[in-house]
Design a protein around this nucleic acid. Structure first.
Lengths: 332, 332
DNA sequence: CGATTGACTGCATACGATTGCATCGACTTT
DNA sequence: AAAGTCGATGCAATCGTATGCAGTCAATCG
């Protein structure tokens, strides 16, 4: 920058002002100077050093996103949308993947205490209120989270009422499709998500006066393989369920393939409902009936909430609900 | 840091030395001091400011990765592996997505001229030699690329011989499976990838003395929808091909579904071969025969090459070849 | 016509770390 | 015993930018 200043015959501070004032702010610069500086920049091929700017301004124009599974299309849509919105504002995005592992979530938080970022978007599966609280307190970084259970005054949240959505989907299997033996491929109830969806399932069965035999309850780990294993177990039962609800589409597809490989017809022999409505649901035959979440909306809201906090325009704690909707296709 | 120094009763430079020396380097610190400093750090909850360190050291402990399609599992494996290796070295990873769009690739390069990163991994589809050259020249940033055609002394590359792999796969369809009418779902030959694979296809047909009628050649844009459209066009021909090679698995799955929806049997009525061997290939029925690329290996090599450059241990320009292999499944 | 104003620019410092050089005491060497 | 060595630490400059404050000059005001 000093070189630019010298070449343009102005002081370094003038160059700085030209580069850091978004067009016309309080401090005015003459057209003449402006042009000279820009042509000097051009000539030298000068590029601003963001590390120095960050040190001085205490802002980095960078946000970080912590997601649970980079191979799940649900998170692609979210991160994709966040990146688009960030790009419009000249923000870069750091993406970290936790694989649903507590240890990795904690490591991410640690990293963010050092790496200066202006904001963080979290999809926490394990992080406790206290951990997030202490992070926010100590760093003052803006935070938005995709989390239903988290209720922190400084953390805006976006979430879907997935418990109710599960309840409604199972209810639909009962009331509309006439199923009375319904299996459930969940995940560990150590995850809030797993707990909520399991509750929704249980409630639907209970209200319909149906049994919820424990052998109808399988747990996977979000992967297709685990869904396939769970389905194999369910179908091996003396009296297998006639419908199965899976907690995400990836496990549902694993389950679907197991059913097909066993020679079962879907949905005639066994119906299948997934969750998330990722593009894969359209890519399998029969097409997968699935509870849609709207990750693009989620990502947009998360980004908007975060930037509102970064800009300091947030007036109060926000908790947004993005409704789910059952998408009926061929598998149920 | 000053506060830590004061509390520990030492100078700020001593604290810095303790934090910046990876264990025992040339400069020795007494155990006594060491402990006092660490307990002071603990007590104050001090965290190093990486922006300041970066400004001083001109290193950021951050690398950037530019990929073409965040929704393609092929790139997940690559970025995933890169992130793992980076994490081991305490590096953060910035991920940017170009959607195969030239404009976005250029924007990424621009961003990297400002944002100080220690290294960049590129998957360039459009960037020219000159653009990459000028970037390297002006920033001196370490660069590694997943690109077959790029031959720059300062850029190490990893690639697969996908042209030959395509040739071999088509050849296999001819020689082993007896097909004589083979369609091709490619992408624009503006992409080097598209060009190379198209050449491989043409060569296999030519060597077998087979026709390559222009109507057997369809172009998609990497998406399932485009694959579906291409397949619909091929199957609508008066004399449709009996086998189709698609340039990636995502388009192949779109094509597969179109075939199934048309009531065709795969592979009896039409055989299908994809490229990339992403997990999706196992998730569809019939399972997709596909040319495997090894993105985990690619990611590992890219990361290793990049870090070798960052560490300055690179002695000469490297070009690695990761062989492809045809994975026979049920679709052909 | 002197004083005030406003447009524009420069000076100098600060952001929070790293690092070459100097210092200083204790110990070894000759 | 003087000189040299080594371990341990402090001093002060520096990285590249942003910004409060002060200064200059021309135009305007009373």
């Amino acid at each position: 920058m000093r070189d630019v200043a010298k070449l343009a015959g102005v002081s370094q501070s003038t160059v700085s002002r030209i580069l850091s004032q978004p067009a016309s702010t309080s401090i005015p610069i003459s057209d003449e100077t402006y042009k000279r500086v820009y042509s000097a920049i051009e000539e030298l091929g000068y590029q601003l050093n963001l590390a120095a700017r960050s040190l001085r301004t205490q802002r980095t124009n960078m946000i970080a996103v912590m997601i649970a599974d980079i191979s799940n299309a649900f998170y692609h849509s979210i991160t994709r949308t966040i990146q688009d919105i960030a790009a419009q504002r000249n923000y870069d995005v750091l993406i970290a993947n936790t694989d649903h592992v507590y240890e990795y979530e904690k490591r991410f938080i640690q990293a963010m205490m050092r790496r200066p970022v202006d904001g963080v978007i979290l999809v926490p599966y394990h992080l406790t209120f206290d951990e997030i609280d202490s992070f926010v307190e100590r760093t003052g970084v803006a935070v938005a989270a995709l989390a239903r259970h988290l209720d922190h005054p400084l953390v805006d949240t976006v979430s879907a009422d997935d418990g109710t959505a599960t309840y409604e989907a199972v209810n639909w299997l009962i009331a509309q499709k006439g199923h009375r033996r319904i299996g459930f491929i969940g995940v560990s109830t150590a995850f809030m998500v797993g707990e909520r969806r399991h509750q929704g399932y249980m409630r639907a069965l209970a209200e319909a006066g149906l049994d919820a035999p424990p052998e109808y309850l399988e747990r996977g780990d979000f992967t297709a393989e685990s869904g396939a294993r769970a389905m194999a177990a369910l179908m091996a039962l003396p009296e297998p369920p006639t419908a199965v609800f899976a907690c995400n589409d990836i496990m549902a597809v694993g389950a679907l393939n197991t059913a097909l490989d066993l020679g079962l017809r879907v949905p005639q022999d066994v119906a299948l409902v997934g969750f998330d409505n990722i593009p894969l649901a359209e890519q399998v035959r029969p097409r997968l009936t699935s509870v849609a979440q709207y990750p693009v909306d989620m990502g947009r809201e998360l980004a908007n909430l975060l930037f509102a906090r970064i800009d300091g325009t947030t007036t109060q704690h926000q908790r947004l609900d993005i409704p789910c909707r059952l998408i009926e296709r061929e598998s149920a």
